[in-house]
């Protein structure tokens, strides 16, 4: 394989990992409370700035990873408790507008506190190294992102498919009333979904900073939107679908820019949203969802 193509694929997988981490949480939250959460991307920003603050404070990296997961979980649970839970019974449109409001509130608070000036993300110099295998090489950052993401997703699948909490989450997502009749404390289960989804989004903020080098208070908008597209590709509400959707989106975005002539590279996002429209036209329930049932 040529170094160029290999580099593109690694790059696409790393970007896809970022999208997948955000998309999974987006999908979990939609799956359990039928809420299109446009504030979800802002957790990425919160994760990125928390990382920067922790680095500045001299916390070692492995601990930073743990702290960022925790900060994301706490932020997600806070938003769910004070904003989304009180409007639970309301219509889907009300919920959707509330998530926009939360997003704008988070972004503008961040602008006020942090200023709009982009900051350099402090990432250890050795992560910028390139590692080679058999004639091709890739950036250590990209490889770390891909490996850590796979570990996190593996852990998530263990929780969702092998634990009592995961079973309760899947049951609640499918039929909230029946889950209550089983004695599931659904508010706690929903809170857990927000915590897990938001933790993954926050950690993708850490990766985002590492990959792109600069962060600003509005950086969450794009990953939030792309996560939404990734979910539509994979089928909203499905965790595996969101993950695959994230990787497909990341890879195709990078390959679109990398394999087509230079003059097309400006149309990268156009391509992404064109992909969204095409998928909505041909497979509105997503590529990886076999059956769908709409819950009123």
């Amino acid at each position: 394989m040529s170094q160029y193509l290999f580099q593109q694929i690694i790059n696409g997988l790393a970007l896809g990992s970022l999208y997948a981490l955000v998309a999974i949480g987006f999908s979990m939250i939609y799956g359990i409370v039928r809420l299109i959460n446009f504030a979800h991307g802002d957790l990425v920003m919160i994760g990125a700035f928390s990382t920067l603050a922790l680095v500045t404070a001299g916390v070692p990296w492995p601990l930073i990873l743990v702290f960022v997961l925790a900060i994301g979980a706490i932020a997600g649970m806070t938003i769910e408790t004070i904003v989304f839970r009180p409007i639970r019974g309301a219509s889907q449109v009300t919920g959707f507008i509330a998530t926009l409001a939360v997003s704008i509130a988070i972004q503008n608070s961040a602008l006020m506190i942090l200023s709009g000036q982009p900051r350099n993300f402090l990432f250890p110099a050795f992560m910028r190294q390139r590692v080679g295998f058999g004639g091709v090489n890739a950036s250590l950052t990209d490889i770390a992102i891909i490996v850590l993401t796979l570990l996190l997703i593996g852990g998530l699948f263990l929780v969702v498919y092998r634990t009592r909490l995961g079973r309760a989450m899947r049951a609640t997502a499918e039929n909230l009333t029946a889950a209550r009749l089983m004695g599931v404390a659904v508010n706690r289960t929903i809170l857990a979904a927000f915590a897990i989804g938001s933790a993954l989004a926050a950690v993708s903020g850490l990766f985002w900073g590492g990959k792109f080098g600069q962060i600003d208070p509005l950086l969450g908008f794009v990953p939030g939107l792309k996560a939404f597209v990734a979910c539509v590709i994979g089928g909203v509400g499905s965790i595996g679908g969101a993950m695959l959707g994230g990787y497909i989106l990341g890879l195709s975005e990078v390959l679109f820019v990398g394999l087509l002539p230079q003059e097309f590279s400006g149309y990268r996002d156009t391509f992404v949203f064109l992909l969204l429209i095409v998928i909505l036209l041909i497979r509105p329930s997503g590529l990886f969802v076999r059956h769908t049932e709409e819950r009123a």
Binding site: A168, R170, A171, E174, M182
Partner: peptide, 18 residues
């Protein structure tokens, strides 16, 4: 109101949730 996407065993386990 069974959980359609869960397996039969998982449905029964949900019954024993408490």
């Amino acid at each position: 109101q069974i959980f359609q996407s869960l397996s039969v065993a998982e449905n029964l386990d949900m019954g024993a949730y408490t």
